[in-house]
């Protein structure tokens, strides 16, 4: 699907950043103008950013609950750098569970989840948190911005934990907000922004550490059609040189994906390949 898509570039960007924790960052936080080291494999194919291998997850299997619910059953999915993968399926089919597993927010009961060739399932909570901060940006349906922090502070939030200096945090956050079209909303609180603006702030926050993987859970679910289209355009632009996994019920949202994986009752019924 991606091959036929027109190249989008709003042409507003171009500030040079250092990569937050691991090395040099591209000159373009929304879109990477040059491939980073390791983005392609030795055979010239794009590198696999996320790999789920025979992943099964049961909620309530920690022993504290009598009943367990199987959310995923033997799910195997690969997502390559530069690829946008959509997840579709009815509620309870396991879309969000996959996103949470890719983000390292949960460890599946069985199977392996590799993020840039690192198996998340054998890492400690602390290591998974660090890997998430470095390599994964999350966009939620309901934005999940901190209501008491300004747009700029929300965007800069991941950089605080990364130990980035205040001036650099502000510079990066302001630049990203300008790039998502919110240069005039920098000091606004989330409560003072529209739904579309909040989601743009959330996208800027997801990008501020220049992650390799973006996961988006119903990113347009709270937005009207026009605003949703704008956010989708932004997300597509973002995902061009990263790996992106988007879960949605919405066909127009899934239409931006290079392939769509269909889930039913925790199983992959169509891998979109």
């Amino acid at each position: 699907m991606a091959a036929g898509k027109p190249e989008r570039n709003n042409g507003r960007l171009c500030r040079s950043f250092d990569r937050v924790e691991t090395g040099p960052m591209s000159s373009h936080p929304l879109r990477r103008t040059t491939a980073r080291d390791g983005q392609t494999s030795t055979d010239g194919e794009p590198r696999t950013a996320v790999r789920l291998t025979d992943v099964t997850h049961e909620y309530g299997s920690s022993g504290r609950h009598d009943r367990t619910v199987t959310a995923l059953r033997d799910v195997s999915i690969d997502v390559r750098m530069g690829e946008i993968v959509g997840l579709e399926g009815p509620s309870g089919s396991g879309k969000s569970t996959i996103l949470h597993a890719v983000s390292g927010l949960l460890v599946p009961t069985e199977g392996m989840i590799e993020l840039l060739d690192t198996d998340l399932t054998d890492r400690s909570d602390r290591e998974r948190t660090r890997l998430r901060r470095r390599h994964v940006g999350i966009v939620f349906q309901r934005f999940h911005l901190l209501p008491s922090l300004s747009a700029r502070a929300n965007v800069a939030l991941p950089l605080v934990q990364a130990g980035v200096s205040r001036s650099t945090r502000r510079e990066r956050a302001e630049s990203l907000l300008e790039q998502v079209g919110l240069g005039d909303r920098i000091g606004h609180l989330p409560g003072e922004l529209s739904g579309g603006e909040r989601q743009r702030v959330a996208i800027a926050r997801a990008l501020v550490t220049d992650p390799d993987v973006i996961v988006a859970d119903e990113p347009t679910g709270e937005l009207d059609t026009a605003t949703g289209a704008d956010v989708l355009e932004l997300l597509t632009d973002v995902g061009r040189e990263r790996a992106m996994v988007v879960a949605s019920h919405d066909e127009s949202t899934l239409a931006v994906a290079d392939r769509v994986v269909t889930l039913r009752d925790g199983r992959v019924v169509d891998d979109g390949g």
């Binding site: 924790e21 691991t22 602390r126 948190t129 660090r130 901060r133 470095r134 901190l146 008491s148 922090l149 502070a153 939030l157 950089l159 605080v160 934990q161 990364a162 130990g163 980035v164 200096s165 205040r166 945090r169």
Partner: peptide
């Protein structure tokens, strides 16, 4: 870096200042 014990002290200080700043702003 990030949570490593051998991270630069400047980075640690920035993080601490940031965390305290977030607490103050929220309050």
């Amino acid at each position: 870096m990030g949570d490593n014990g051998d991270e630069p002290s400047e980075r640690r200080r920035s993080r601490w200042r940031g965390l305290v700043g977030i607490s103050i702003v929220r309050l």
